[in-house]
Design a protein around this nucleic acid. Sequence first.
DNA 1: TGTCATGTGTACTATATAGTATACATTACG
DNA 2: CGTAATGTATACTATATAGTACACATGACA
Lengths: 116, 116
Amino acid sequence: MTFGKYIREHREALKAEDRRFSVRQVAQRIGVEPAYLSKIERGDVAPPSEAKIRALANELNEDVDVLLAMAGKVSSDLQEIIRKRPQLFADLIRQLKSMPDHAILRIARDVRDGDW
Amino acid sequence: MTFGKYIREHREALKAEDRRFSVRQVAQRIGVEPAYLSKIERGDVAPPSEAKIRALANELNEDVDVLLAMAGKVSSDLQEIIRKRPQLFADLIRQLKSMPDHAILRIARDVRDGDW
DNA sequence: TGTCATGTGTACTATATAGTATACATTACG
DNA sequence: CGTAATGTATACTATATAGTACACATGACA
């Protein structure tokens, strides 16, 4: 599933219930030209900037990190966290590359609950 | 410490022991024009691409992730790992943002040793 | 003392990124 | 049935990124 198709599908789904989710109106609310959003949805151009993707995620109630990932990007706040302690995070992330989802989830939960 | 100054310092340190670490020769080995490396070291232009930073790290025996961080970048292999499971990694990394170094180190070690 | 290597100033350049602006045919509906 | 909204084709544009090419003054050293 490409970024564009995903956006189109989810926008159309919302549009079925609410006419305010037309290309034109969504485009206006996220601050781009309708023609541009149309091209994005059809994959005619590359996905937009992080800022526009955030606005889009907000508008369509989608997960920002998932949309950014589909657009081939990583959230700038995550990049900043990594850049502040590059070795620590680089090592950990590469370790986790081959771990199953549940293991990563468990670590996140343990960290959150302070289980150290 | 900026990227350029860091590179200059470390290159000059190596040059003191080995004349092959002149701007010109290093530039040639990493595949850029001498004038360009000179400008990079003086902060006259932005840091180079990830590929050139990798070549530079290799040449100067420096940690790639640290150099990339100084250049305001995050290694593309890390980005790819995150993009494959965006929610999982986004959550975990944001959890770890406020954790001390030793906690992150310990997680990495536990994962490596399979202490689950 | 001549020449060879060194660092750098200046002037370009190609490609990617991130869009805008306008016009037009089609569809919906009051 | 007319008009208003819709999606899209086409043609541009501005800025950033990632460098090259060449000339020149200075210093090293054989």
